[in-house]
């Protein structure tokens, strides 16, 4: 028998694993008789403290991994489902408004591109000109 055929780590692991299994296979009564103080103390065992530390680690990991939520934007929300044609129609209703600049937009709405129509409509939603 040669103990040089395995490296030191393997040798210590062979011993450690055998003794660890022996512990796990021992009855609770045996463990208690080896550790009589266990029955007496009411404080937590180091195993329980390690479990609490693990719970904290998981909690912190989860908190770090929650993605940052984009701020809610009512204008973006109201824009859902609105196409350029619908936005263009909405803008034409501004001609009845008292604000001269809005009347100007309404009068020129046919000359605006779809992108500009959507952008102006969104700005007006954000500024509260259009209500829900």
């Amino acid at each position: 028998m040669s103990d040089k055929s395995r490296n030191s780590y393997e040798q210590t692991f062979q011993i450690g694993r055998t003794l660890a299994r022996n512990i796990m296979e021992s009855s609770d009564e045996e463990i208690l008789s080896d550790n009589p103080e266990t029955q007496l103390f009411s404080s937590k065992t180091s195993g329980e403290l390690i479990y609490e530390r693990a719970l904290n680690t998981i909690k912190q990991t989860k908190e770090k991994s929650v993605p940052e939520l984009k701020a809610f934007n009512l204008a973006d929300f109201m824009l859902i489902g609105i196409n350029a044609a619908a936005a263009r129609h909405k803008l034409t209703t501004l001609s009845a408004a008292n604000d001269p600049s809005l009347q100007l937009v309404a009068s020129q709405v046919d000359e605006l591109t779809d992108t500009d129509v959507i952008r102006i409509y969104k700005d007006l939603l954000a500024s509260g000109v259009f209500k829900l």
């Binding site: 660890a20 463990i31 065992t45």
Partner: peptide, 27 residues
């Protein structure tokens, strides 16, 4: 508590001769 004691001791034995503590392994 006995189950936790078993796990602590077993972890320490598994780390016998290794530069890792049983507590870290259990964690």
């Amino acid at each position: 508590k006995v189950k936790w004691i078993k796990l602590e001791k077993a972890a320490n034995y598994l780390c016998l001769g290794l530069p890792i503590s049983g507590g870290d392994l259990l964690h």
